[in-house]
Design a protein around this nucleic acid. Structure first.
Lengths: 213, 213
DNA sequence: GTCTATAGCTGGATAGAC
DNA sequence: GTCTATCCAGCTATAGAC
């Protein structure tokens, strides 16, 4: 917004804002027409420019998808890691589950781009993907807070939540037939994991340093 | 194979076999190139005919997708309801979970067409969809055998399994990072549901007729 | 950076002869 | 039913003037 910092001049800043404007238009279009219906013609028209101008900012259509992915991934990590007033770890986990499902179901196109492989041959770049990795790491930490440290339970956790989301958006879009099961699903998960050996009881500092074996 | 039965003449049988040959070719192509890459040109070439001939058998491309969906749905219900030697209900449920996941992960394109909404505006016809409904009903009955009658637990069940499948094909295609969690996931599900009130213990005929309330 | 114009391709679907 | 030939629409991407 203000004067750019010393590392980049105003040219680069302007170019960035141009890119952002195009990504804005791309998301508008995708929300209206669906993820696969994005075309450079329509995109340019919505952005108030022409198709060749798009190529002044992006090398290809996939580069646009990549920028869209990067924004979505940033929104994702910001959304699920936004601060929560400190509570018990269990409530924290529950709130994060709600946030995840809310994030996914509130924008199905974004969910598809971010979590499903619905676009032909598109693969996000490492830079665009990085925020998503941070979000997963944050989920892992939240499980650790609950005394859950085994990697397989992180996998089970993601499967459980993405299963609810997937069924919801596939079979009851706009409804709550599956999202209303979140609380019970999380309770099921927690009580199962806690019933297994090798799980520290949450916030208990009584045990020793928990060596690997 | 033999003489057709009295209700339809040989013309119709021949037309049917023509359709089947085209659907064969369509699945071949989709397995090789992906679901979205199906084009009528390539399809015709693989089937050994020309594009206009395809229209002698199908009204549109969507009609082809519909026939593909119908075959996939039939394979699905045949696969998951294939007879199992009689065992305890719990083992039956476990075997069916394995079958479901095996079915989905063994052919991702088929899984996408059948369970995800990856094709633009395609909606299966009621006829093509019917077998999938039968399969769901069969899953419901299998849960009932385990004393699980509440509809929400059928939803939780499908979410759990489809979540494992979804994560598996999205994040570890060809691997077993999520599929190896099936047994534990099913155990988690069963012990949770059984811990809740309103669940009959399996195969117990001791309780009365179980009125709705 | 932005435009006009257009290349080059692929797609679904159809006309009409045989 | 099957073909040849073709239409028409849509797409990504580029050339070249300004």
């Amino acid at each position: 917004m203000s004067k750019s910092d010393s590392t980049s001049d105003w040219r680069e800043a302007r170019r960035q804002s141009g890119r952002e404007a195009i990504v804005d238009a791309a998301w508008d279009l995708v929300h209206a027409e669906g993820l696969a219906a994005l075309s450079l013609r329509d995109l340019a028209r919505r952005a108030g420019i022409t198709t060749p101008t798009v190529y002044a900012y992006f090398d290809s259509k996939d580069a646009i998808y990549d920028a869209m992915f990067g924004r979505a991934a940033t929104e994702f990590v910001d959304w699920v890691t936004a601060p929560l007033e400190a509570r018990e770890p269990e409530e924290l986990l529950m709130l994060r589950a709600h946030r995840f499902v809310e994030f996914c179901t509130s924008d199905v196109a974004r969910y598809q781009l971010l979590f499903q492989r619905t676009i032909s041959n598109f693969k996000p770049s490492a830079e665009s993907y990085a925020p998503a990795v941070r979000a997963l790491e944050s989920a892992r930490e939240c499980l650790v807070l609950n005394g859950i440290t085994q990697p397989k339970y992180l996998d089970l956790w993601t499967a459980l939540l993405s299963g609810l989301v997937d069924q919801q958006v596939s079979n009851d879009p706009g409804g709550d037939r599956w999202t209303r099961l979140i609380e019970e699903a999380v309770a099921m998960f927690l009580s199962h994991v806690r019933s297994m050996p090798g799980t520290r009881t949450p916030r208990s500092k009584t045990s020793t340093t928990r060596a690997r074996r």
